[in-house]
């Protein structure tokens, strides 16, 4: 798929469209309009996030507000969003690193090891797709309490660091690598872990980046589980943190400018990751489809 888009990407930087037919003009118009509509709420949120509460309450005021970036400062410091962002980053980083590492090891075993019940183990891993958090939420919460993990980083990362999808994707990718490469390594007595680190990982950079983006976006998006298992506000993640902002009011008026600033802040990290790594992400998606 990526190659399909790459095929035409060379022309995408062209400023003028010399040979544009009437049909193509319509297509361009349709695309610009669709993308504008999809982005419009975000643009409006950006504008409003600079306005004072008074300006926000003048509903149709679309000027850059007089508050500048002060809503952002207030949200980050007074309303603790800075702390929530750090918490989210730590959570997402632990989940990404943990999931990639565990899944690489599991895929290494599934593809390169001969062992009994291999097929059953793979199916056992895949079947966890049937068990999203809501299916096990009450006992999982009790388990965290029993383990003494409530209100800790462990509670919001531990259940997420193993994944059927990541194991599946790495397994698919490893299977496309010619077996003669590992046989060559074996003739030299190169062990499986050395082979993983020196050969498989360098050869899977794109796939690892793709899985990392998917995992980061997924982890950053977590809301329900942190809401339940983290009751100590200072340990909360940013998605739930936005909820706390809703209570922010000034002389009886909800500070929507501040809330929009918070929403923009909570969106930026995954958006940046997506833009920076969209290529490996698209390639990974195309493998998932097969």
């Amino acid at each position: 798929m990526a190659t399909e888009t790459d095929r035409r990407s060379g022309a995408s930087t062209a400023v003028s469209f010399p040979d544009v037919s009437g049909g193509q003009l319509l297509v361009h118009g349709g695309l610009v309009l669709s993308i504008f509509l999809m982005g419009l709420p975000l643009l409006l949120a950006l504008v409003m996030s600079t306005q004072t509460t008074t300006e926000v309450y003048q509903v149709t005021n679309l000027q850059i507000g007089s508050d500048g970036l002060s809503n952002y400062e207030t949200a980050l410091s007074t309303y603790n969003l800075g702390q929530y962002m750090v918490n989210s980053f730590v959570m997402a980083a632990v989940i990404v690193v943990g999931k990639v590492a565990l899944s690489l090891l599991a895929a290494l075993a599934l593809v390169y090891y001969e062992f009994p019940y291999e097929r059953a183990v793979f199916v056992f891993v895949l079947l966890t797709l049937l068990l999203p958090v809501p299916v096990r939420i009450v006992p999982l919460f009790q388990l965290m309490a029993d383990l003494g993990w409530a209100n800790t980083l462990l509670a919001i990362t531990g259940p997420y660091i193993a994944s059927a999808t990541a194991v599946f994707l790495f397994r698919q990718h490893f299977r496309t690598i010619p077996s003669s490469l590992v046989e060559n390594a074996r003739l030299d007595g190169v062990g499986p872990l050395t082979f993983l680190v020196r050969v498989l990982i360098p050869m899977s950079r794109g796939m690892i980046a793709g899985v990392a983006v998917i995992t980061f976006v997924y982890a950053w998006n977590q809301y329900l589980w942190p809401l339940i298992v983290i009751s100590d506000q200072s340990k909360q993640v940013v998605q739930v943190g936005i909820r706390f902002l809703q209570g922010a009011s000034q002389s009886g008026l909800t500070q929507w400018g501040l809330i929009m600033a918070g929403a923009v802040i909570a969106l930026l990290p995954p958006l940046a990751v997506l833009i920076a790594l969209h290529r490996p992400l698209l390639e990974t998606f195309s493998l998932q489809q097969k």
């Binding site: 010619p178 003669s180 490469l181 046989e183 060559n184 050969v199 360098p202 050869m203």
Partner: peptide, 9 residues
Amino acid sequence: FQNYALYPH
């Protein structure tokens, strides 16, 4: 090997 078995990186 037939497919050379070289590490591409």
